[in-house]
Design a protein around this nucleic acid. Structure first.
Lengths: 350, 350
DNA sequence: TACGTTTGTGCAAACGATTGCATTGCACGT
DNA sequence: ACGTGCAATGCAATCGTTTGCACAAACGTA
């Protein structure tokens, strides 16, 4: 179809090798006369030459493509990550191949296989997170892989995540400082790194405050809106309901909001709310939500950095970076009057 | 690295050709003995053979990849489209290569070039929409291309979009039916297909109602939140401000909400709002927004359908599909009392 | 028996680029 | 005058698959 090296070679009278060397300044070892370079470049231009990257990759065993795996690209958190990753990698001349695993480990395995079949030069993975076996295999094969956002305790690999424990602590301590004592936690998918860490932070904050954990106040089983909805409905029916809810992700929070509206509970007057994650629309909700924000740009930058470092030097020591989240205080938490706190405590003692 | 056809050939004693024919049930023309098939498949399994798709594509001139171009993947509308497209195409054994053009025509051209370099088998494009020249070239080269959501008047190519004129008419007529007379329109990027069509619908609805268009009530110049913010602020300062705002996209609407909150305008009591687009969080906003929803799943399905049809038969007649949008009525529009309507009209006559 | 036809397999040429190893000519030093 | 070295270029193998063509054996048929 389009022009190839051979065509240019034929037209200029030079050999294919020379043409190749001119057009792809690769092997700088050999020198070529200025005149030749001029002629070849000109003819290439005229013929509208475009290299066949399939052939090139086949030969060089490099695709200049990075595989990206995310659990749900329709989630703004991940689509923003993808967007930033693509633009960051472009700067270095790398393309991206994105797969959505739909929070599904077996789809994740399949995607990974495809990515390997495509011979990507490296991988950046926001894993589903329940299993790391397939990921371990890849690292074992020597393919550069960075985990992002989601990582594993039992899998020592380069990665960057936010400090989930810390984020939860910030959220819960904020609630405590505002006078809340009965704080519910609606969790995501148990067994995943993010969820366990966030739960740990919740527990830690309560422990530090000397408040015993009430198992009734912990519920939920996945990261979806429906989960938030169901759990909230349930929390409102228990004997001594929470005065505040801390929810483990933005989607869960949307479900919480829906349930609260249905039950005509006003935020924050009747119940307070803090959420993990801070997608771009959080501040437009009414009330604007107090949220634990993750530094996405920074995370992306570091992930790319780690990846290139690993690609350049496969022997390099493993690095795991933990970023600090930020608590963005908006209007979804009510300051509980001291009186009522005292009253609460008295109630409990009765 | 991994096993290749040659390895299997060597191990089994058959030729590479035979192995190839067994493993890739391609050319069914030739027959191969059951026994041979068994042996070869078994050895392939044992060696963990995975075909090198670079070599394959180089040879067959088919990549089984579809290029997808969207103007902003961090926008839930497009990320949902991408997600659905990927899953739909997977069913047919096709992979996807996604590029984000960042609403930037020159980046779109560059992405297109990359996609062609990658030898994708077809393209589904949600164009930036100001220029179609580069897209025309591609179609001219005979590469299957479908436009989606964004299309062009002066570019006759297969495509599927929502009926933007109709969507606007529905939105504006709803406002009119609820008694509004002064309806502002905050538009997106002028010159783009979607914007012009939406503006046309706005004008048409007013015309049908016999209401003259007040240029003061039309503003805006891109699809971003900041645009909505600025225009709203401005609209609130004019002498005879609107009682309702119709905004041309979800992002613009977020800007509108921010401005209205800053100005302490209560929706819908003090000002009504209808928005084009209906991302998943619209119903969680307070109040939940009345919105023009686009049938994304249907659109994706049709786009894929059109693409395969075109790929199968390049000569097929061109098809442009227009889908009906839906008006989702929620709580952001106030029914204006008849009295005040009459008063409005009297005021205008004075 | 002789001659199509079918069945199962192999040979070798593509696909388009890269690159180690020649090869050629020329300038320079001795 | 002769080797030495460098600059500029070409040869040809290679990456892993696919596939048209050839071919041998087996089979059916008259």
């Amino acid at each position: 179809m389009s022009a190839k090296l051979k065509d240019i070679a034929l037209k200029t009278g030079f050999s294919q090798s020379t043409v190749s060397r001119v057009l792809h300044k690769g092997s700088q070892k050999v020198s070529i006369s200025e005149e030749t370079i001029r002629i070849i470049k000109k003819t290439a231009e005229e013929l509208g030459y475009r290299p066949n990257i399939l052939a090139r990759s086949l030969r060089t065993e490099q695709t200049h493509e990075i595989g990206i795996l995310v659990p749900d690209i329709s989630n703004p958190f991940f689509s923003t990550i993808v967007k930033n990753l693509a633009s960051e990698l472009r700067k270095f001349g790398y393309g991206t191949v994105v797969y959505d695993t739909d929070e599904n480990t077996s789809l994740e395995e399949e995607s990974l296989r495809h990515l390997l079949d495509k011979r990507v030069d490296g991988l950046i993975v926001a894993a589903v997170g329940q299993e790391a076996k397939h990921l371990k295999e890849i690292v074992h094969k020597g393919i550069p892989l960075i985990t992002m956002d989601r990582c594993f305790n039992d899998f020592d690999v380069d990665g960057v995540s936010v400090d989930n424990v810390q984020g939860s602590i910030m959220a819960v301590q904020h609630l405590l400082n505002e006078g809340h004592q009965r704080i519910a936690f609606i969790q995501g998918l148990p067994g995943t790194y993010a969820n366990e860490e966030r739960k740990k932070g919740y527990a830690k904050a309560l422990e530090l405050a000397g408040i015993p954990i009430d198992p009734q106040l912990i519920g939920g089983n996945d990261f979806r809106a429906s989960n938030g909805y169901i759990e909230t409905k349930h929390l409102l029916t228990i004997k001594n309901p929470p005065t505040a809810i801390f929810s483990a992700s933005d989607l869960i929070t949307l479900g919480v909001l829906e349930a609260l509206r249905e039950e005509k509970k006003i935020i924050p007057q009747e119940i307070s709310l803090v959420t993990f994650d801070d997608p771009y629309f959080t501040k437009y909700l009414s009330p604007a939500l107090t949220a634990v924000a993750q530094p996405i740009e920074r995370m992306v930058e570091i992930a790319v950095n780690l990846l290139f470092r690993r690609m350049k030097n496969p022997q390099e020591q493993i690095r795991r970076v933990l970023l600090e989240p930020t608590l963005v205080v908006r209007n979804s938490v009510l300051r509980v009057a001291r009186l009522s706190v005292v009253k609460n405590i008295r109630d409990q003692n009765l």
